[in-house]
């Protein structure tokens, strides 16, 4: 950890460069994270209107609910995806400089956060347009999404290692996470009738990691708070395990990076 601190200026510079190069190349870069939630809204509102699908009682206007839940899902998924690329994305750098491996995880996290702040701000008016409202509890929202972020980073650190030594495995995890989106109350409410799937939703940590900050932001109360507390503890343990796994494994990786 001390070593990483020594490289704080490097982390800053690298993050700066990756964020800026993204904007140098694309104008859409800023908005594309907004695109995915909007597409989700369109799909599910149509399904809902067509009567194929009953999302349950979402508490507020359905489009606003889907939109903001999807945004939080994207926030989680992008944190996972960015961090999972930390070793492979920076392979050339790691092959040619002696750097602590933690630096690239922090850089990918910073890159993700920088990319997300603007879409998140744009979100607020869109929520209102879609018929939602923002409560006073929204002030605590930035704190409430931290566990979700760390969940994404932790998963990303596991997969960052697998991406080098077990590519098939990492692809499987990628796909599994995409499926988990539908086992999390993103396009439906927590009280929706899902039959046997309700059990999985109940035990899915993302139900609480996404549900709690969403309800805080939209002023929907604190129905998730006890589950959130327990999940928080689990995330801390999971993160420490992931960090250990990552730091023990990475010294073995660098010489296998030639293929990347």
């Amino acid at each position: 950890m001390n070593k990483i601190f020594k490289y704080k200026y490097f982390i800053y510079q690298l993050t700066r460069v990756s964020v800026l190069s993204r904007y140098k190349k694309t104008r859409l870069g800023l908005f594309w994270m907004l695109l995915s939630p909007i597409l989700t809204v369109i799909t599910w509102v149509i399904l809902h209107k067509a009567g194929i699908f009953n999302p349950g009682d979402t508490g507020i206007a359905y489009p606003a609910y889907v939109f903001f839940s999807s945004t939080l899902w994207t926030f989680f998924f992008e944190a996972y995806r960015s961090v999972s690329e930390s070793v492979t994305f920076h392979s050339k750098m790691l092959l040619n400089h002696k750097l602590p491996y933690g630096t690239v995880v922090i850089e990918r996290t910073g890159f993700h956060l920088a990319n997300f702040i603007i879409p998140l701000l744009i979100n607020i008016p869109v929520i209102l347009i879609f018929g939602g409202s923002i409560g006073f509890s929204a002030l605590f929202f930035p704190l409430a999404i931290i566990p979700l972020l760390f969940m994404g980073i932790a998963l990303g650190m596991f997969v960052a290692v697998l991406k080098v030594v077990a590519v098939d495995f990492s692809n499987v995890i990628d796909e599994v996470i995409k499926v988990v989106k539908y086992l999390t109350p993103v396009v439906y409410a927590a009280n929706a009738d899902l039959g046997f799937l309700s059990h999985i939703v109940k035990w899915n940590p993302l139900t609480y990691l996404i549900g709690f900050p969403r309800d805080i932001m939209l002023g929907l109360g604190t129905q998730y708070i006890s589950g959130f507390g327990i999940t928080l503890l689990a995330v801390v343990i999971f993160f420490l395990l992931a960090w250990r796994f990552y730091t023990i494994s990475t010294p073995l990786l660098v010489e296998r990076l030639f293929g990347n």
Binding site: Y12, K24, K92, L95, N96
Partner: peptide, 28 residues
């Protein structure tokens, strides 16, 4: 160590900006 000179050099950025990035990778 100086291996391939191009590593850590970002083509879209100016030489001056690259001094900071690459130098920081060397631990400056």
């Amino acid at each position: 160590p100086i291996f391939t000179l191009s590593s850590g050099v970002h083509p879209l950025f100016t030489g001056r900006e690259n001094i900071f990035v690459k130098g920081a990778a060397f631990g400056l």
